[in-house]
Design a protein around this nucleic acid. Sequence first.
DNA 1: AGCCAGGATGCGC
DNA 2: GCGCATCATGGC
Length: 289
Amino acid sequence: MDGVFERVANFSVKDYDLEATLNSGQAFRWEKTADGWEGVINGRWARLSQKGQWIRAEVTHPVQDWSWLRDYLQLDCNIEGIVATFPDDPPMTRATRACHGLRLLRQDPWECLASFILSSSKQIRHIRELIRALSKQRGKRITVPEGRPPWFSFPTPEAIAADHEEALRQLKLGFRAPYLLEAARYVSSGQLNLEALFSLPLEQARAELMRLSGVGFKIADCVLLFAYGFHSAFPIDVWMIKSLQANYFGGKRVPLKELQAFAENHFGSHRDYAQQYLFHYQRMGNSPE
DNA sequence: AGCCAGGATGCGC
DNA sequence: GCGCATCATGGC
């Protein structure tokens, strides 16, 4: 790729729904404006918008190689092939049709881990507010175009690790404060090597994440989905419990263990995407947002 | 007022 | 092994 340096790029896309993708509970910093979606990728401000078959990206620093953005947005994934692996049953078909174009992002592991530690027992809009406040208080101010409100990078593990539980509690993190602090100290000290998880099998990567207090099966699988791209991760939260029970168990209550076993067997080799489609479809129905 | 939110943990049984 | 209370906060 030897293009020229540009601040704007346009990408031809097929079967891509940018709004659904940025607003489906996998990333928490994207904000809708009159001109698209503003957010931060790899510590830099970006604005994304979509018109039909085109996604437009605007950044503050001239870029020659846009592969980082193609990777983040997963522009090159074969969504048709993935959808073809879904089970051929009515609920899955409904969700697939309703969420056409929804993708899984490929996010930074630390930001994703920290974000989902904070997500515990919180509504999505509260998670967004928490992360906005945390970034403002502990991140660095970054360059934005003239006239745009200030933006801050997501705080590094080092910045959090140097902090104190009580100070974090004042940012309204609640019982999540010690969890985030421990995670930051594990990562910044090298006790947990997030880069190394890319080359581990799913079960080992999951076990590594679950060494952290405050990280159980569900949060671990969210990170394995949204940052690492493990195809067999299948986080089950309250929305997925509702979805699975309503669609596959006649509305009856089912123990979590049983739901996990069902998901493991039923949703095929791309459970990652099947999960996100069911989740988003469930949340569209009676969305609190 | 009580219940719920992209949960996890520690306790009693 | 299971169910249950508890953790902190905000919105309905």
